[in-house]
Design a protein around this nucleic acid. Structure first.
Length: 893
RNA sequence: GCGGACAUAGCUCAGUUGGUAGAGCACCAGCUCGACACGCUGGUGGUCAGAGGUUCGAGUCCUCUUGUCCGCACCA
């Protein structure tokens, strides 16, 4: 015992163990194998990012599955990667340069990209080493970065292919523009937030001088880009004005009054100003009516030359103030009202997004959405929890074209070259030397890069060597499970499904496991601004990776968020320590143990000497294996963790280790040897069962076991099927007998506790079994009962004088035993009277309920026979117990 | 506006075809009993958000109400 500390110290174990696993290549998958494949692709984290709690959860889920399947005989591949994360990474480097007073435009594209690469080389390992600290058992030999050559090839091939199929096109459309990024962003990157603002009602004078129309707006500065006003064609108030014009305030332009069904007669004045270049609805109206699209914004969100000179160069906020004040001066402002409306914000920078008319690259997703919908409808791909299916299908049904070009420098540059001579666009996988149309050498590559999600969307096959034909793809595509949060179902999951079907003609994965978010202990999102983020690496340092992993797994419930608290972590850490100490005890007991020569894990030769407790723990091990297997098969991770916790703590430690102490400290070598064998076998299974959840401590203990093979990480996962021979040693009837013994011990302990009999005080007990079977059980359990209940004497009798005694009836199935403890001289009877009254009260309530049920004719008539029968038995048993307690009470009073 | 999720012990959550509520933490009482005080033993906590319905029987199924959260759409 001396060589092991009585505290489990994760830091002594984790890094050395991980290194050893890596050195032995235990995580590496085989491209070809006779084993069945099992593959998960890791959602690639931002290459220069930190590991956060969301990753910890996401990765632990995947690692549990992977380790479980690896131990279950699968050729497992957990394919890791990192993402160049275009906007995020570029922003970080830009911020860093800004500290030195440098802007990216100062140093130019080439040098800037060089700086980002430097940054990547400096910080790119951090996230990987953090993943290793968590215990992620990825096949690192396959680590892929989204800008790697192979992936880049895949990206170009897909782009060119889709372009040729006319699924990718270049067009001038209204897009979401982030003035801070000076780039287009996709619909998904816009976050709508309710903002308290105002609505301004503005007079638009009729050109014929007959009055004015009133249009309301929440963005008055956009009136500078108005090219029409619009009314509902059936609106009697304005019918006569349709086709006429109004004067645009502050600008003087004549605007046509048009009619369109889009306008709601009931809303406001029923007149809408139309700014086709800066509003999505207006854009559509503009297209229907062939209106001029007047772009009034520069890239940085300031007003451009299409606005009157005095507004040029102002940002939208200042322009708004000035427009409003001028309207007021000219008496064109009718009223201002407070108004709350939702405003699009850039997900990355938080700035207000401006709809802007701009030329960009798009993917036409409509056709690809059709098969992507079908595979989910047909359950070829299944979402867990299932409720996400609806969300996914809804989005697919309303899918918009995907704007894939970004005006950034960090990423996959669009493989399109413009000819300055013939204007032809050459789209090619290899950099062309000349225009494919006119052979001019005067060509220039498109400056834009592709949306990061474009390359991520190819991840399930680009990481496996596509477009080359590789063994890896044959073996591992489609992958089995995708584990991720719901925030990227559209960004990533949907795109992988569409692109996988398009380019691999098969789904990328079978199951999508969507987990919740990690929140703080108050249920708030973890965020920088609230400063409530918890660093998983700090948690690992303080509590150990196993404790963190176990906490997450015991709290994860399908589709629900996790409120993370260190209290739970502490409890998991205590659990790890419990296991550690149980192992410490066991290893001490096993010091002089010599494993039998024959196949040790299923050795049955010593069956004759097995104690009831041995049989019992084997039986319970089997039950635990079944529970864990069921839970993991259904991805019910908290059930699996809970089953392990209960089994290890409350069965193995609380009872089995206590039961065997007299045996292992005793003087019967055959019994001791048998128990040693069982103990070593059970502990071996305990650590293997725990391994997916707590890989470090389980490997550490495993390596010290007298019975083991090479490594826990690659040993077989214990299941009822795999353990059939050994588990056959567990006998249900014997296990039940031990359960009766436990119940008797608990009853005595209860009497002791409630009567405050000091633990050190040895007492006498009489046990009265009401049948031969009970007598036999007590006979077998007697010595355990004496030890564990602290008895000096234990008589098994058919009848006893119960005067001045505490009496507790113990009833389990068909076994009924009265536990009788003489109290005379030990305590006064007040506590015992209280205890009895409390128990009588409790049992009477139960009995009452059952009686009520049984006296209901309809229940007896309609309920299944076995339910009625069970109720009757319960009633009889309760009545008997109550009687027994009542008579004891009388004897005390 | 449409859709989804949730409401169970003080806290965090289990509760899988409807059979009469469980765990961990916290709390109370007592314990150096040859692994562990990150421990051991015993114990106290619940009108299962509210109302109605189906049923012999509802935490579980249906309807409505209230409250919380999350998507999507609209927002002149």
């Amino acid at each position: 015992m001396s060589q092991l500390s009585d505290r489990y110290k994760p830091q002594d174990v984790e890094s050395k163990t991980y290194k050893w696993w890596e050195e032995n290549s235990y995580f590496e998958a085989q491209d070809t194998s006779t084993k069945p494949p099992y593959c998960i692709i890791l959602p690639p984290p931002n290459v220069t990012g930190f590991l956060h709690m969301g990753h910890a959860l996401d990765h632990t889920l995947q690692d549990v599955l992977i380790r479980w399947k690896r131990m279950s005989g699968f050729n497992t591949l957990w394919l890791p990667g990192t993402d160049h994360a275009g906007i995020a990474t570029q922003s970080v480097v830009e911020k860093d340069l800004a500290k030195q007073g440098i802007k990216r435009h100062d140093i130019g594209r080439e040098e800037f990209v060089e700086k980002v690469w430097e940054w990547k080389h400096q910080y790119g390992d951090r996230i990987v080493s953090q993943m290793k600290r968590l215990g992620d058992s990825c096949d690192w030999s396959r680590l892929t970065f989204t800008l790697d050559e192979g992936v880049s090839k895949a990206v170009r091939k897909v782009f060119v292919d889709l372009y040729k199929k006319q699924r990718i096109y270049k067009g001038t459309r209204l897009i979401n523009w982030s003035p801070k990024l000076e780039s287009a962003i996709s619909d998904l990157e816009v976050e709508y937030k309710d903002v308290k603002g105002s609505i301004w009602h503005i007079k638009y004078p009729l050109s014929d001088g007959s009055g004015y129309l009133t249009a309301a707006t929440t963005r008055p500065e956009t009136l500078l880009g108005d090219t029409a006003v619009c009314v509902n064609p059936t609106d009697e108030r304005y019918k006569e004005h349709i086709g006429k014009t109004v004067e645009l305030p502050l600008v003087g332009r004549k605007l046509k009054i048009i009619a369109d069904d889009y306008v709601d007669k009931e809303f406001g004045s029923g007149v809408v100003k139309i700014t086709p270049a800066h509003d999505f609805n207006d854009y559509e109206i503009g297209q229907r009516h062939q209106l001029e699209m007047l772009n009034i914004l520069n890239k940085d969100g300031t007003l451009n030359e299409n606005a009157p000179e005095k507004f040029q160069g102002l940002d939208t906020k200042k322009a708004r103030e000035q427009v409003v004040s001028e309207l007021e001066e000219q008496g064109l402002l009718l009223k201002v009202e407070p108004y709350t409306h939702s405003v699009g914000h850039c997900q990355r920078t938080g700035c207000v997004v401006e709809p802007l008319l701009s030329e960009q690259w798009f993917v036409n997703t409509k056709d690809m959405a059709i098969p992507a919908k079908r595979v989910v409808e047909s359950e070829t791909i299944v979402f867990e929890p299932e409720s996400w299916t609806k969300t996914y299908l809804h989005w697919m049904n309303n899918i918009q074209d995907w704007c894939i070009s970004r005006q950034l420098w960090w990423g996959h540059q669009v493989p399109a070259w413009y000819c300055s001579d013939c204007q032809h666009i050459t789209v090619k996988e290899q950099d062309p030397a000349e225009c494919e149309n006119c052979n001019s050498k005067n060509i220039q590559q498109d400056e834009d890069v592709l949306d990061t999600w474009f390359s991520s969307g190819l991840w399930p096959f680009s990481t496996m060597g596509w477009p080359e034909e590789t063994e890896a793809q044959k073996t591992f595509y489609p992958t089995n499970v995708l584990v991720t949060g719901h925030d990227i179902i559209f960004f990533w999951v949907a795109r992988m499904i569409m692109l996988g079907l398009e380019f691999k003609q098969d789904v990328p994965f079978r199951t999508v496991y969507i987990h919740g978010l990690i929140r703080d202990s108050q249920g708030r999102k973890m965020s920088k601004s609230l400063n409530n983020s918890i660093d998983p690496v700090e948690m690992i340092e303080e509590y150990g990776a196993d404790a963190l992993r176990f906490t997450l797994m015991s709290q994860i419930a399908s589709g629900r968020d996790i409120k993370f608290s260190t209290q739970r972590l502490e409890s998991s850490r205590n659990f790890m320590n419990k296991i550690w100490n149980a192992a410490r005890f066991a290893l001490n007991v096993l010091e002089d143990f010599e494993p039998p020569k024959e196949e040790p894990l299923t050795a049955v030769s010593s069956r004759a000497h097995l104690s009831d407790a041995d049989v019992w723990i084997i039986q319970k091990t089997g039950e635990c294996e079944k529970a864990v297997d069921d839970a993991l098969s259904n991805m019910r991770f908290s059930d699996a963790a809970g089953a392990l916790y209960d089994f290890v703590w409350h069965e193995f430690c609380d009872w089995y280790l206590e039961f065997i102490k007299p045996v292992v400290y005793g003087d019967k070598p055959e019994e001791k040897a048998a128990t040693q064998l069982v103990l070593s076998q059970v502990l071996n299974r305990v650590v293997r069962l725990l391994h997916p959840f707590s890989p470090f401590i389980s490997e550490e203990i495993y390596q010290k076991l007298p019975i083991k093979s090479e490594a826990c990480v690659i040993d077989q996962y214990p299941t009822v099927k795999n353990d059939k021979t050994w588990l056959a040693l567990g006998v249900e009837d014997v296990a039940f007998e031990v359960d009766v013994t436990r119940a008797v011990i608990t009853a005595i302990r209860n009497i002791r506790g409630e009567n405050r009999i000091s633990p050190g005080q040895k007492i006498k007990a009489k046990l009265i079994p009401h049948a031969d079977k009970g007598q036999k059980i007590l006979g077998k359990g007697q010595s355990s009962i004496m030890t564990l209940a602290g008895l000096a004497e234990c008589e098994i009798v058919s009848e006893a004088d119960k005067n001045k005694c505490a009496v507790t009836p113990v009833v389990l199935k068909d076994i009924s035993i009265d536990v009788v403890i003489p109290l005379e001289g030990l305590v006064d009877f007040e506590e015992e009277i209280k205890r009895l009254e409390k128990n009588i009260d409790k049992l009477s309530k139960e009995e009452n309920q059952i009686s009520k049920r049984l006296s209901n004719d309809n229940f007896v008539k309609n309920a299944p026979d076995e339910v009625v029968e069970e109720a009757k038995q319960q009633q009889a048993s309760l009545q008997q117990q109550i009687e027994s307690l009542k008579s004891s009470l009388l004897r005390l009073k």
